[in-house]
Design a binder for these strands. Structure first.
Lengths: 228, 228
DNA sequence: TAGGATTTGTGCGTATGTATT
DNA sequence: TAATACATACGCACAAATCCT
């Protein structure tokens, strides 16, 4: 066998699964598919050029992650969240964020700090012209970068899972103008700068506490916005 | 339609999926299927009287939960865990156990206290004649009962997930006589009694701390046992 | 190196369940 | 109530990947 072929492994079943899974998950979490929306197995299968079988495998996985729910005879729907469940998840996410600074914290190397600086620049850009989807993408990228600050793999997995489950609900509130988008962008820009300041001091625990505080405040703003 | 038929809903696709999923997960976690073992899709499908298709749906879900891994052309294997990954998971489980006493703790009602008393009796029974599988089952039942002490649903889900991922590895050590089984039963019996004492005082935080301590000690005993 | 046995992955036709007319 | 449309769930035959001789 030619080893050059085995390197290009994007054609194997496993990698195709990963691509589809990642793509559909992103669409859900960036609100291309909003909560309550019905997805069509056939349309998705056609779009990705596969039959329903491998696509359904992806949907089953996403159902296990709490992002979809399939009902026989009815359809496959993007899940929503009640305020009670959302509250519980946010309380847990706050604790997990703090744990990131306690359990195997890992100081960022030069490469990662460069990534943070790039994220900060993207944020400054949004201050002038706030675009919903660009904000959603930046928010996700920043969260994923923060996860690299701990070596505890199970903690990373769980934090990521809860992020994907809840942030889209929060984003929906932001985009529905219940909260003002440009305000939210300003707050987020401050969060990035605050956390980067802590990281440059090498104070991982402080960085985690700042993140925890911002998760808490995000939820509070959303909650107050809904109560209006 | 006869409403009596819709009540017996064990025949619907969703319930059948739940049954198969629960059954196979238990087999994995009670070490009927031990880490590294290969499972046969065809044999399992035959045993449960279904075709490969719905069975594979269950396997995909279990793979998402980190209990299985399928490789095309090779087989479906029960996952194992390296000491490093196990350490990280135990550290996280300790923190989550403590969170159970902090996030929406719920005092046990009479019904749940009766359940705990029944679990305690089963434990006393094992003190005389320790049987591996009975101990594994009791350990799982006790853990699941403890989860009812919090109203935070996401915390329950995650704690359960991590329990299923790691406890079987610990059980494997116990059963391999790296640790003495009767010693482990005695320690576990004390844990039940200690936690019940805290519960009877209504001190949920204390109960959670005791659980955290025992998770820590279990891991330490396993670790020391392996180092011999 | 080649080929056959075995296992998971895929494609498609059909069964089953649900909502609507 | 019944029929029809349409969605997911299922069963089976075949393709693709891997392992071993």
């Amino acid at each position: 066998m030619n080893p050059l072929n085995t390197d290009n492994s994007d054609f194997k079943a496993r990698d195709r699964f990963e691509r589809l899974h990642n793509e559909i998950r992103n669409r859900i979490c960036l609100l291309d598919y909003s909560p309550g929306m019905r997805l069509s197995e056939i349309e998705l299968a056609d779009e990705f050029g596969v039959s329903r079988t491998p696509l359904r495998r992806v949907l089953v996985r996403l159902e296990g992650e709490g992002l979809l729910q399939s009902v026989q005879g009815v359809g496959t729907f993007v899940t929503d969240a009640e305020i009670e469940e959302l509250t519980q998840t946010y309380l847990l996410r706050m604790e997990l964020a703090e744990l990131t600074g306690k359990l195997s914290p890992k100081a960022p190397d030069d490469r990662l700090m460069d990534d943070f600086r790039a994220l900060s620049r993207r944020s400054k850009h949004l201050l002038d012209a706030a675009e919903p989807r660009a904000f959603a993408q930046l928010n996700m990228d920043f969260f994923l970068a923060l996860l690299k600050l701990t070596d505890n793999e199970p903690l990373r997995e769980i934090s990521e899972r809860l992020y994907f489950q809840t942030t889209r609900i929060w984003l929906k509130s932001v985009f529905a103008s219940v909260i003002d988008l440009s305000d939210e962008v300003q707050v987020f820009d401050r969060e990035i700068d605050d956390i980067m300041a802590a990281l440059e001091l090498g104070d991982m625990h402080a960085a985690a506490l700042i993140q925890r505080a911002h998760i808490s405040m995000s939820f509070t703003r959303m909650h107050n916005g809904q109560a209006r």
